[in-house]
């Protein structure tokens, strides 16, 4: 049976308002469903696979423009396992750091045994500390307490899940379109700003991974100094759990 023209007119007239209604009803609904922690997990998924390898260059820049550079090879598996091996400069070559949850160790070839280190220390000097170098997923270390919609980006108010995390709070700006972080304020428990991180240079790393290739940081506690981290060859890699153990630290370079 053919539909009547009346029905058609009704359908047309009701369709657009219905779609608009659906749009306005569902959109806030989606935003509500996509809460801060969901966004944070999505940020992590966009930034790196669960198990991967990557290369990073760290550059410390002094007020007079002098630079000191470090190149690291890193491996990560799951929520809480990460290794960073120094490839250069020669004075640091062969040093490796391991993180298992809240535990961190530094292996220096001459010392010949791993020493426990803390997240607040910095094995490279400058503004990046160990927790920046051995950073786990944001959602592993932080919980979103609040989310503010600011037009083209969200601002997430993140609180550390455990006291062993280097920064008690993060204020993270997340680009709405890409769900990638752009700016992060790292705050002490008192609310004092410790450092600011800025992600930039979005790049296609292959395998569907499009993420920032550069991270810059500055700190009001070290005025005039800057540090930059460049990322390269970020790619998925399956790794045995045993790689993330103290006895394996001296052999990490063999995995490259």
């Amino acid at each position: 049976m053919m539909p009547s023209s009346h029905t058609c007119i009704l359908n047309k007239t009701t369709l657009i308002p219905c779609l608009l209604l659906l749009f306005f009803v569902l959109l806030p609904g989606q935003a509500l469903a996509l809460d801060g922690n969901d966004i944070l997990r999505q940020v992590d998924a966009n930034m790196q696979p669960q198990s991967y390898e990557m290369y990073r260059k760290l550059i410390n820049i002094e007020p007079d423009g002098k630079k000191k550079e470090f190149v690291l090879y890193s491996l990560k598996k799951g929520q809480d396992k990460m290794i960073a091996l120094f490839l250069s400069p020669a004075s640091e070559k062969g040093r490796s750091t391991l993180r298992l949850g809240d535990n961190m160790w530094l292996y220096i070839p001459n010392v010949g045994k791993p020493l426990r280190i803390t997240s607040l220390q910095s094995v490279v000097g400058g503004i990046f500390n160990n927790s920046d170098i051995l950073r786990l997923d944001y959602s592993t270390e932080y919980e979103a307490k609040d989310i503010i919609d600011e037009g083209d980006h969200y601002v997430l108010d993140l609180t550390a899940r455990t006291p062993s995390v280097a920064y008690a709070r993060l204020k993270m700006e997340v680009d709405k379109k890409t769900l990638l972080p752009t700016n992060i304020d790292c705050l002490a428990i008192s609310g004092m700003l410790i450092k600011t991180l800025h992600y930039s240079k979005i790049k296609d790393f292959g395998d569907g991974m499009i993420r920032p290739a550069m991270l810059e940081t500055s700190s009001p506690l070290q005025k005039g100094y800057r540090s930059v981290m460049l990322f390269a060859k970020v790619k998925k890699r399956d790794l045995a759990d045993e790689v993330f153990s103290l006895n394996y630290l001296s052999k990490v370079d063999e995995l490259r």
Binding site: Y55, K57, I59, K67, V71, Y73, L87, S88, M214, V228, L230, A232, K233, R256
Partner: peptide
């Protein structure tokens, strides 16, 4: 240039 990352540096 200041922040270049030459992949030759990480060649195994």
């Amino acid at each position: 240039e200041m922040f270049s990352f030459d992949l030759d540096e990480i060649e195994k």
